[in-house]
Design a protein around this nucleic acid. Structure first.
Length: 571
DNA sequence: GCCGTTTTCGGCCCGACTGTTTTCAGTCG
């Protein structure tokens, strides 16, 4: 039983309670619990087995702790089963349609017997929804649009696409008439691994001109809303962008409000409330008087807090840390001195050894690890022992001829089903940098997978665990293992954990970075480059590391080449 | 259903926009 499954159960309970019009605070409790559980790096099942008191988790009280135990034991809980019997099984799907909430879902069920997305589509297409009191033709159209969006899965986009989109919008706004400054906020500013939409704050000198300039942005396909405060559009790519007009006096408060996260904002507002203040997107107020708002720093300070980097604003302890002055000094892109995972055209890369190294040097690095695949990855033309030894010799020879640059002769060796490595120990022992990764049998049971990873970690020849969870965001689920046990084994064996910067992977995920740091591990941020341009993906790995509270000292490849050489030779 | 320097009861974050209404409910972030 995964934490995400427990979270899904709590969310489903909340969905049903909402449709039933239950107490909003009870519903909120289930939502909070779902989030709390979903963010947890330790597995609930393990905590329960160890006899830990689950009510110590945020948002979990007696009742929910009991339900967690029930879910772990039986895969479900009575509350959910009872609720499910009271409504058609797929009615909660209706809530996924943008613009459709619990109240209308209930009305649609009661008046039109709509029980599923399919029913909804049929009714909307037949023009039946407009006849319901409180709804009209536009509501019907919105529902049809919402259904189309849902079907096209134009939901969340990856961090790379979001970054490109943000960049393009920035180019458009630069020098636009009526626009003084702008900033992309929302989950993109927090560097979340996927982004639902883009929130752009715009300070204007001329609102009318600014709105006109915005609407002239070429990729806009549809204008969703256009009021005095904001312009909402959908781009041809399916991405929704909200432009919000902000006054200079409220800029900082608006930045905080729209950057979120929602949970983080709630913590701040509660804190303000306790001080007799009110915090909203216009500022921090005592009565009608604005006491702060121009800059984020000013607002945080008025709340008795250090400025909190956006990446940390997830209600994961950052407000408490800011209060005590304990915030981490987060790692930055420029702290990195080299890349520790790259392939060449000898296996499945597109660049030669020389091209990859040259590209790394151009990026100001001091070293690059060449880590081609081992033979088990046949589709990548993985190397056997002899071929790898020859490759390593060639890399070393090439490296020796370079001034002020070190090419580490490495490998990305496969961790086979049973935890054995795909190459001989003596081959691996002779390399500078050994990344061990899982590329097969992703579906293994948790206990087996845990043993498999620990065996690799304890092999004595592995430096780093590559893309530890093996996930492909939106395509392949993470493998299941007991992270705390594997991390403990890594710590014991002096094995590093990779933060794979490839946008589809971003693996280690943020909450596990944070957990690994707490357990005293060191991470290596690496791009898994398959072509020279992939080296630029490093930025995305840094974003994950920052979301995981990592400092410069928590990341191996912030070391200089000389220091890295020394560190690795100590193994 | 959770939670506590207003602590075991009585609170629980805040505002904008849309579409449908003649003053507001529903939804979203």
């Amino acid at each position: 039983m995964e934490n995400s499954q427990v979270a899904a159960i709590f969310d489903e309970i909340a969905d049903i309670l909402e449709i039933q019009g239950e107490n909003v605070f009870r519903i909120r409790s289930y939502r909070n619990a779902a989030r709390s559980v979903g963010d947890l790096p330790e597995r609930l099942e393990d905590l329960a087995a160890a006899g830990k008191d689950l009510t110590e988790l945020p948002g979990i009280g007696e009742s929910l702790a009991e339900k967690i135990h029930e879910i772990i034991a039986g895969g479900t809980c009575k509350t959910l089963e009872d609720l499910r019997r009271q409504l058609p099984p797929h009615l909660t799907d209706l809530l996924k349609v943008k613009g459709l909430g619990p109240k209308r879902a209930r009305i649609l069920y009661e008046k039109l017997r709509i029980k599923s997305l399919a029913d909804l589509k049929k009714a909307a297409a037949a023009g039946k929804i407009r006849d319901i009191e409180g709804m009209g033709e536009k509501t019907e159209q919105n529902i049809l649009r919402g259904l189309a969006t849902l079907e096209s899965e134009a939901g969340r986009i990856g961090v790379k696409q979001a970054a490109e989109q943000a960049e393009s919008i920035g180019r458009h706004l630069r020098g636009a008439k009526g626009v003084r400054r702008w900033e992309v906020t929302g989950s993109f500013r927090r560097r979340r691994e996927t982004v639902g939409d883009l929130d752009v704050l715009v300070e204007v000198t001329d609102r009318e001109a600014a709105a006109q300039a915005i609407l002239a942005y070429e990729p806009i396909e549809e204008t969703i809303a256009s009021g005095g405060e904001k312009v909402s559009v959908r781009l041809a790519s399916g991405v929704q962008v909200d432009f919000r007009f902000i006054e200079a006096d409220a800029w900082g408060a608006a930045m905080m409000y729209f950057t979120g996260s929602k949970a983080h904002n709630i913590v701040l507002r509660k804190r303000a409330q306790k001080e007799g203040l009110k915090l909203n997107e216009y500022g921090l107020f005592r009565g009608a008087k604005r006491v702060a708002g121009r800059s984020e720093k000013e607002v945080f300070k008025a709340l008795g807090l250090e400025w909190i980097p956006p990446e940390l604003r997830e209600d994961r302890g950052e407000v408490e840390a800011a209060e005590k002055g304990n915030l981490p000094k987060l790692i930055e892109r420029d702290d990195l001195r080299g890349d520790l995972h790259a392939h060449t055209s000898l296996t499945d890369g597109a660049g030669t050894l020389e091209e990859m190294v040259e590209a790394a040097r151009r990026r100001g690095y001091e070293y690059l690890a060449i880590t081609d695949h081992s033979k088990a990855v046949t589709v990548a033309h993985g190397l056997g022992d002899d071929a790898l030894r020859r490759h390593a010799d060639r890399i070393r020879e090439y490296s020796a001829g370079l001034k002020k640059f070190w090419v580490l002769a490495g490998v990305e060796v496969d961790i086979l089903k049973d935890g054995q490595l795909d190459l001989q120990e003596k081959t691996l022992a002779g390399l500078d940098w050994v990344v061990a990764s899982v590329h097969s049998a992703f579906e293994q049971a948790e206990a087996k997978m845990t043993d498999r990873l620990i065996a690799a970690v304890r092999s004595g020849v592995v430096h780093c665990l590559g893309h530890p969870f093996g996930r492909l965001i939106g395509k392949r689920d993470p493998i299941r293992f007991d992270a705390d046990r594997v991390f403990a084994a890594c710590r014991e064996a002096g094995v590093y954990l990779e933060i794979n910067a490839y946008p589809d992977r971003l693996d280690l995920p943020d909450v596990y970075c944070k957990r690994a740091r707490e357990l005293g591990l060191t991470m290596a941020i690496a791009t898994d480059s398959h072509r020279t341009t992939d080296l630029d993906l490093m930025e995305f790995g840094v974003w994950v590391a920052r979301r995981g509270w990592l400092e410069k000292g928590d990341v191996l490849n912030t070391l200089s080449a000389a220091a890295l050489r020394k560190r690795l030779s100590r193994k």
